[in-house]
Amino acid sequence: MRRTKGFTAVATSILKWAVLVFFLLVALLPLCWLVLNSLKTNLELQTSPFAFPARPAFENYANAMAMANLPRLFLNSIIVAVGTVFLNLLVSSMAGFVLAREEWRGRDAVRTALEAGVLVPIIAFMVPYFTLVTKLGLYDKLYTLILVYAAINIPVSIFLITSFMRAIPKELEEAAIIDGCGFFQRYARVILPLSRSGLVTAGTFCFIYAWNEFVMAMLLTSSLSSRTIQLGIRFFTSQFITDYAGMFAAIVISMAPSVIGYVFLHNKIIAGLTAGAVKG
């Protein structure tokens, strides 16, 4: 029995590592290829697709920054992403507080309705979003994207923040009430600080969403002053069709904030994703 198990164990082990390495390559090779290409000259791109560049062509990055208004678009994206995080966390934490810590009629129904929003296909709403935004005179404004992104992230944030706030022991809040804390102080001084971890997770999801979003940005903005970096790199190709190396450099620049954020916050992100899966 030991012998047969030894053979199957070796075979399973080889297969197992083949699968793991395959998906490792799927995740990393396109990105490595991208970074490598961003450091080649356009000639090297054509003639030696797999070779390393003779000398890293960092000027591609300078070119990308200079040609496509990248700094402006990058700054716009930062404003939109930070604004989205701030607005979404403010409104979601207020609602989360009363959904998690107060008792009132219809509470569970409201919570279920808000959370069910994750199942709605937002792309079906291109027509109403566009008409609503133009009618309200919000077309082509940076803060419109903040408003839209913060709203779209409400279901996820409410889910994460409410589950976090519900887990805070009642005693802590009762102690605060005895100390004379009112409604607003319980929110600001007790519950908010104690749910910091949930807020960070929800905020990270908001940031990544807002940084990466493309469709609504394309639909709701038209000028440089309100366009985001995703639109910038998307339309880079049509503007500078011959400078592929510069395009690759621009893509690398556009990925930097989310990749760097992920390096530092990956545990929070993964924990946030599994918050539902483990509890169920």
């Binding site: 396109p30 990105l31 990466n212 556009s254 990925m255 990956h266």
Partner: peptide
Amino acid sequence: ALRTIYFLPNVISTVALAMVWSAL
């Protein structure tokens, strides 16, 4: 580490990934 790396593409924008794959 593998779990973290497998999820990495999910935090990169669809625009960037689509452009990289178009190039591939």
